[in-house]
Design a binder for these strands. Structure first.
Lengths: 262, 262
DNA sequence: TAAACTGGTTTCATTATTTGAAACTTAGTT
DNA sequence: AACTAAGTTTCAAATAATGAAACCAGTTTA
């Protein structure tokens, strides 16, 4: 139904996800316990993925872990498909200007993926942050992106949120979330009102194509100790400039050198 | 034979690699030109991969690019399968101590993948470096790892090197490379004698398990303007300490919390 | 020492999926 | 209106995936 299911490839990738979801090397038997597939089938999947170096096998311990080929592919993904490389300069500038942490995120399925992060004060090494996923319904970037999703796509995304109550401002129902999304859409920006973590607030703006498609979102995060929503709101014009610049870059970019043959 | 070929999954991953190898979004027709598969078959693969969000499709332009799901998976790969997270502290320390750029690399197939990098002077943002691949035959880390590969594995790896002459110290034959690997094996460390880029030299040491399996390699890079091979050689004891510490971490690590159920 | 177990690997007839030539559909030319 | 290029769908034949069961170590238990 939802998401998975295309033939053999889909199943193999499910297994890959499963391995990745353990945050440590796993034994075959451990996978088997959680797997819907019979022993022989799962075994063959794991073999195939290992041959393909999507999984790596530790012979000393008999464990499987996500393979290095993924790291290589991801490098390509990050370079080509994400906004990060072409947004880099803009984000550096923004982060320097506002003196707060800036996040660049994109939507994957129903989750938010942080593809870049710039911390004005102490620049955290990236990979530890890039690729990190978070919930969409209780983050500034998540809501900013959802607010601009076409209705047909929004529905399923709303369904798949967990609506876990992290704090007492967390949205816990589709309805209340949908209301806020409308507000965000009319304002052009949205907040995280300590919905995910107490004391942490942010403003977020979507990054849209000329055709209005959602590319990603940009946020500036701070703490209630340092500022408040009004303070963040005052940054909106500055952030909007960056968002538009990134959108511009993105539309210029694609096809750096389209061949002119035949 | 070598590498590819496991059933449908293997083929799909080949297509994924192909998309990744263009460093830009590609049209279906462009893929078709380079693909061994007939139109309908390729089409179905691309569809499947897109459904699975391993590829992303830009409807405005009709192009495909590696998908964000890869970024998420890679995060897991990097965290679990690579030495980077558990080597981080050690590398920080080493880089600070020697005041030069430190690379942490692993072997994928016949290529070197840099999984982490620490630059004493200006800390380069990571993702742009992590995941980057390089040739094995003309890099310090590559040679250090090959030197400790079991013969059965080494053969194919040696075959697959390009032996492109980057500089006049580059190895251009299996034989000369094999000779150096022997030397490295008996010394316990190896150099990059400007084999890849003029003026760039490095010392590299392998990171091995207790059983002697190659986990990765560590290198300290400098320029001929700042030092020479002897200078780098004097760092070997210091680097060795780090290599051993990382190996130790790696063997301690696996199974942080093995479940004790039934 | 044997018997039972655990964790992993292989077999093989059955079943379901993939395959790809060709036909079709748009949308853009001439 | 006829032609083309690029992308999408069909469908019978060919191929690959499936999984119950058998098998093969090592380990533990009796």
């Amino acid at each position: 139904m939802a998401g998975s299911g295309d033939g053999t490839v889909g199943k193999a990738l499910e297994v890959l996800d499963q391995v990745a979801s353990f945050a440590r090397p796993v034994r075959f038997s451990e996978l088997l316990e959680t797997s819907p597939y019979p022993k022989a089938t799962l075994y063959r999947f794991v073999q195939t993925l290992t041959n393909q170096r999507m999984l790596s096998y530790d012979p000393d311990r008999g464990t499987y872990a996500p393979g290095v080929r993924l790291v290589r592919l991801a490098h390509a993904a990050w370079q080509t498909a994400s906004l990060a490389p072409l947004a880099r300069a803009q984000i550096d500038q923004l982060s320097a200007d506002v003196g707060e942490t800036v996040h660049l995120a994109q939507l994957d399925h129903a989750q938010v993926i942080y593809v870049d992060k710039r911390n004005a004060a102490n620049p955290v090494p990236m990979f530890s942050q890039a690729g990190k996923v978070g919930p969409a319904y209780c983050t500034g970037v998540g809501k900013a992106m959802m607010a601009y999703l076409p209705d047909a796509e929004l529905g399923p995304v709303l369904e798949q949120q967990s609506y876990h109550r992290f704090t007492d401002t967390t949205h816990t129902s589709v309805d209340s979330l949908r209301n806020e999304l409308n507000d965000i859409r009319s304002n052009g920006y949205g907040f995280d009102r300590e919905e995910h973590e107490p004391g942490i607030i942010c403003v977020a703006l979507p990054i849209l194509t000329e055709t209005g498609r959602v590319l990603g979102a940009l946020s500036v995060t701070s703490t209630t100790a340092r500022t408040n929503l009004a303070g963040l709101e005052s940054l909106v014009p500055r952030i909007k400039t960056t968002a538009q610049a990134i959108s511009q870059e993105a539309s210029n970019w694609h096809f750096p050198a389209a061949a002119t043959n035949t």
